[in-house]
């Protein structure tokens, strides 16, 4: 066997850039799993989520924080959440989540499926106006809201994780196009 361990490469190669008042930064190294709720298993799932991650089960479109600082549960659809958390071993995202949730959820690894980009700063909403079709007004999309949408033909999960901060997740294979689309929006919207 080969004794050289495989080197990991993140979808955006640790990209980070500040343009005007907006900072873009790749978020890497977190574990992300989907957890689907077995039929008739809502109660058991809520209990497992509370026990395993210390989070209240969010409705689709909402998110909930867990006890660990990086843990956030994102309500993706009526019978599915995504759990974003810090796994002790990034290669063990599924076993870690499965251990926490037991048989109360079907867990699938999504850690490598999405390029994650945090977009923050005073100009963030003005920049997002150029690609995000959703209404990101504080009343309509308050902190903690999550949604699936499309930006420049690309599937995007958007989470508001601060007054002027959003976490965007878009498929890994098109990460370069996605980064370009976001970057261009910030450039176009920034004040010269």
């Amino acid at each position: 066997m080969s004794d050289s361990a495989l080197a990991a490469r993140t979808p955006l190669d640790a990209y980070g850039r500040t343009i005007g008042t907006v900072t873009l930064a790749e978020i890497a190294g977190l574990a992300l799993v989907s957890a689907a709720v077995p039929r008739d298993g809502d109660e058991a799932f809520a209990a497992a989520l509370a026990g395993g991650f210390g989070a209240v089960r969010p409705a689709a479109g909402d998110s909930a924080l867990g006890t660990q600082p990086a843990t956030r549960v994102l309500g993706m659809q009526p019978d599915q959440v995504f759990i974003l958390f810090e796994a002790p071993d990034p290669d063990q995202a599924v076993p870690t989540a499965a251990a926490a949730l037991g048989s109360a959820a079907y867990v699938t690894d999504q850690s490598d499926s999405w390029a994650m980009l945090r977009m923050s700063g005073a100009g963030v909403r003005v920049a997002l106006e150029r690609i995000c079709p959703l209404d990101l007004d504080e009343q309509a999309f308050p902190e903690g809201r999550v949604a699936r949408t499309v930006m420049e033909h690309l599937s995007v999960i958007i989470l508001r994780d601060g007054p002027d901060s959003f976490l965007l997740m878009s498929p890994r294979s098109s990460a370069r196009s996605f980064r370009h689309a976001v970057e261009l929006s910030v450039e176009n919207a920034s004040v010269p």
Binding site: A36, R39, D79, Y106, T108, D109, Q110, S113, R172, S173
Partner: peptide
Amino acid sequence: LDVHLISVTEQ
């Protein structure tokens, strides 16, 4: 049916 799907093409 108790069945759940998720794409792992990118994973």
